[in-house]
Deep mutational scan, measured.
Amino acid sequence: QEELVKAFKALLKEEKFSSQGEIVAALQEQGFDNINQSKVSRMLTKFGAVRTRNAKMEMVYCLPAELGV
């Protein structure tokens, strides 16, 4: 569980995922086979993730800066 949270936060820091499906796929690539869209959705809510525009003006998920991840 701890490893999943770390990987999840690291992915969001990249600010390149525009959908929950993309986050699920990226986590599965890292070996988290039991991850699915509903789990990702709950984690996004739990950590207060928001959708914002990145440098390329794409809408992407990211974590609020005050979490200091």
Rank of each mutant, 00 (worst) to 15 (best):
L63V: 04
G31Y: 02
K39I: 14
Q37Y: 08
R42Q: 14
L27P: 00
K46A: 15
M57Q: 13
A7Q: 06
Q1M: 12
E22N: 06
Q30D: 04
L11W: 03
A10Y: 08
A7C: 10
T52G: 09
V5D: 14
F17I: 04
E22V: 04
V60C: 02
K13F: 08
Q1A: 10
L63D: 03
E66G: 08
L4T: 03
D33S: 13
A49T: 03
L63T: 02
E66S: 07
K6L: 12
F8K: 00
F47C: 03
A26K: 08
E14Q: 13
G48W: 03
E2L: 12
Q30W: 08
S18M: 10
F8W: 01
D33G: 13
G31V: 01
E29D: 11
N36H: 06
L4M: 07
V40C: 02
A26P: 00
K13L: 12
G21R: 14
L12S: 00
T45I: 15
E22Y: 03
N34G: 14
F47E: 05
K39C: 08
E66C: 15
R51C: 15
A7W: 05
C62E: 03
V24E: 05
V69T: 15
G48P: 01
E58R: 06
R42E: 15
Q37H: 10
N36M: 04
L63S: 03
A65L: 14
V40R: 00
V60S: 02
F8E: 00
G48M: 05
L12Y: 01
V5G: 07
D33L: 14
C62L: 06
V50K: 14
Q20E: 15
K56P: 02
F32K: 00
S41P: 01
T45H: 13
V40N: 00
G48C: 04
T45A: 11
P64K: 05
G31L: 03
Q28D: 03
K6E: 14
L12E: 00
Q37S: 11
A25L: 13
Q30K: 10
V60Y: 04
S18Q: 15
F8D: 00
R53N: 08
A26E: 09
K9H: 11
A25K: 12
F47K: 01
A10K: 08
K16C: 11
R53T: 14
L11N: 00
M43C: 02
F8P: 00
S18W: 06
Q30Y: 08
G21F: 12
G68W: 05
L63N: 02
L12F: 05
S41D: 14
Q20V: 14
M59W: 15
F32D: 00
A49F: 04
E22R: 06
A7E: 04
K13W: 08
G68M: 06
T52E: 09
K9Q: 09
M57S: 10
D33Y: 11
P64W: 04
L27C: 02
I35P: 01
L63P: 02
G68P: 15
K39Y: 09
A65K: 13
F32C: 02
F47D: 01
G31Q: 03
V5L: 13
M59L: 14
G48D: 05
A55T: 08
K13M: 13
K6T: 12
L44D: 01
N34F: 15
Y61S: 01
V40T: 02
F8L: 09
M57C: 03
I23T: 00
V24T: 07
Q20W: 06
A7Y: 06
K16T: 08
V50Y: 11
K39H: 11
L27Y: 01
L4W: 05
Q1T: 11
V5I: 14
K13G: 11
E3D: 11
G48H: 09
F32M: 02
L63W: 06
N34T: 10
L11A: 06
T45D: 13
K16H: 05
L44V: 05
A10L: 11
G48L: 04
K56R: 07
E14R: 06
S19M: 06
E66V: 05
A49W: 03
V69K: 05
V50C: 09
R42S: 14
S41E: 15
E29W: 08
S19E: 08
F17R: 03
E29N: 11
K39S: 14
V69M: 07
V50T: 10
S19I: 05
E3I: 12
A7M: 06
F8Q: 00
S41K: 15
E2H: 10
A10M: 11
E66Q: 08
E58N: 06
L27Q: 00
M57E: 10
K39P: 01
K16D: 03
V5Y: 15
E22H: 08
M57Y: 11
L67H: 13
E58P: 03
E14M: 14
E58M: 07
L27R: 00
V24N: 02
D33M: 12
E29G: 12
F32V: 02
M57N: 15
K6A: 14
L11K: 01
K39G: 10
L12N: 00
I35F: 04
K9A: 08
S18Y: 05
A10W: 08
V50N: 05
P64F: 04
A10F: 08
K56Y: 09
T45N: 11
K13R: 14
E66F: 08
Y61N: 01
T45F: 08
Q28E: 08
R53G: 04
K9I: 15
L44F: 03
F47P: 00
V5E: 15
V60G: 02
G21C: 03
L44R: 00
E3M: 12
E2D: 13
Q30E: 06
K6Y: 10
M57R: 07
A25E: 09
I35D: 01
K9M: 10
A49V: 07
F17A: 04
I23W: 01
V60T: 03
I23P: 00
D33C: 09
S19T: 15
V60E: 02
V60N: 02
F17M: 12
D33T: 15
L27A: 00
F17T: 04
E14T: 12
E15I: 04
S38V: 11
